[in-house]
Amino acid sequence: MTKKLVTIRRKALAASEERADKLRGRFADSGTLVFNLISSPGSGKTTLLETTIGRMAEVCKMAVIEGDVATERDADRIRAMGVPAHQVLTSGACHLDARQIETALETTDLLPADVLFIENVGNLICPTTYDLGEDFKIALLSVTEGDDKPIKYPAIFSRADITVITKSDLLPYVPFDLDTVTGHISSLNPSGVILVVSSTTGEGIDLWCDLIASRLEAKRRS
């Protein structure tokens, strides 16, 4: 019996990253801009998508992949607005991975689309590690969650290209210091964009839609 030592440097998630790269190629071929939405459960991801669809359905073709532990509720809400949606049910798993995105594209006619939103499983931790072939990670934080969340769960806020602070209409009713939070997020991620929105009053929604449109334009030019 001999002992062999093999020295390598291989990414532990190489297989998963390879899948994500293939997806990125596929999205490049179809000219689809892809956002990976990550937040706590209940921060308003699906509601923001509904609002976005309401505003942008006439200017671009959208599609949605929903990740949840159980039920088709979110995909049903999107389909009710006339946008194709695929529901991934994770049966307890805490994040989506590239394999599930591949399956979603095989089972549901989502492409071609101008914009694909992937709404990850509600969780501020695990989805951060997994590349789904997206162009941008978007973090959502609702004002009712409390203003210490970015410093308590820093990984997603340091990696997200855009952070959307949601439910701004509730600011007068909750102890959420907007300046402190935007300061924390900028310190975690000096190059990130921060938006403050309310799907209820429409505050910030124009800026959000403009941002999507400009990123789509940039992707088409590249």
Partner: peptide, 27 residues
């Protein structure tokens, strides 16, 4: 996880720290 210099407030350049690599396998 702040990426701001505690002394002057400029954004820090961060290298490494995101490793998740298999380095050696012994069998």
């Amino acid at each position: 996880w702040f990426r701001i210099c505690p002394d002057c407030g400029a954004p820090l350049e961060v290298r490494g720290g995101d490793e998740l690599d298999v380095l050696e396998v012994t069998f």
